[in-house]
């Protein structure tokens, strides 16, 4: 009755109506962003009086947007590489180690996930001021690595736990050393987990803003920091353009992830 769409009766209309309203609520802002980015009026009129690409041209020719985009890419790439590397090492220790307190170690690696970002932001800010590395690239990478590492550890330990340890043992009996066995046999076997770890690490850094506010300097800003600065000043169509591009990128990434999932399910 309740779990059968055809036999919900009057509840079906109620359910469809609420679900429809919720979907509209979730979708409308995204559609609006895209509409505004083509809106010919600089005052964000809706419905738009006309359509234009001028805001896109403006953003693409703005060296500041470009610089922050590049900064975001650079920070994200460094964070991704380090996060996957450290996550992989930790994953091996957590899933293959023989020492006591492995579960405690696993829990410890997840703690940055539950800490409110604002607390981490000002804690690192305070430490970096003291060390005179506030506003530096290294500071950015360190801060985002703290946030990304838990995701990487989760994705990689998950993948390692699904990979039989006997695979590693078999490779070792074949004559491979421990790390040779891991690199040649285990890495290919957990490649989906590694991809997930990289994706989550990059996205964590790419989207992060709260901690980034405290890491940024006027000359070193990631894309979200710059967006926040703009938003605090005024609602220019520039942000609609950047936001639309981000929505597009998200949709593309989701498509990619879905493809990847299909491939890995086979």
């Amino acid at each position: 009755m309740l779990m059968d769409f055809a036999r919900l009766g009057w509840m079906r209309w109620l359910l469809c109506a609420t679900a429809g309203a919720c979907t509209l609520f979730l979708l409308a802002p995204l559609v609006l962003l895209i509409a505004l980015s083509f809106d010919s009026s600089p005052w964000l009129q809706f419905p738009p009086p006309g359509w234009t690409l001028q805001w896109y041209a403006q953003v693409f020719h703005d060296p500041d947007w470009l610089a922050s985009f590049i900064t975001s890419l650079e920070v994200g790439s460094c964070v991704t590489v380090l996060s996957v590397l450290l996550g992989l090492l930790c994953g091996f220790a957590i899933t293959r180690g023989q020492f006591r307190g492995r579960e405690i170690l696993r829990g410890f690696f997840l703690t940055p996930m539950i800490l409110p970002s604002i607390v981490l932001g000002i804690a690192l800010y305070s430490a970096f001021l003291w060390l005179h590395i506030a506003g530096s690239f290294a500071g950015f990478v360190i801060a985002h690595l703290v946030l990304a590492l838990p995701f990487s550890v989760v994705a990689i330990t998950g993948a390692l736990e699904q990979t039989d340890k006997s695979l590693e043992d078999a490779a070792m009996l074949c004559g491979a050393g421990l790390w040779e066995a891991r690199v040649r046999v285990i890495l290919p076997a957990i490649r989906h987990g590694l991809f997930g770890a990289a994706l989550f690490s990059f996205l964590t850094s790419w989207d992060e803003v709260v901690v980034a506010i405290f890491m940024a300097s006027p000359t070193l800003q990631t894309l979200p920091v710059r967006m926040l600065g703009e938003l605090r000043q005024d609602l220019s169509p520039d942000i609609a353009v950047v936001s639309s591009l981000l929505v597009l990128a998200t949709a593309l990434l989701m498509g990619l992830a879905a493809l990847f999932q299909k491939e890995s399910a086979r």
């Binding site: 039989d164 006997s166 695979l167 043992d169 009996l173 046999v185 290919p188 076997a189």
Partner: peptide
């Protein structure tokens, strides 16, 4: 040399 209970061929 060893043959394991579970299948341990390298899947890739």
């Amino acid at each position: 040399g060893m043959v394991f209970q579970r299948y341990t061929l390298f899947p890739h």
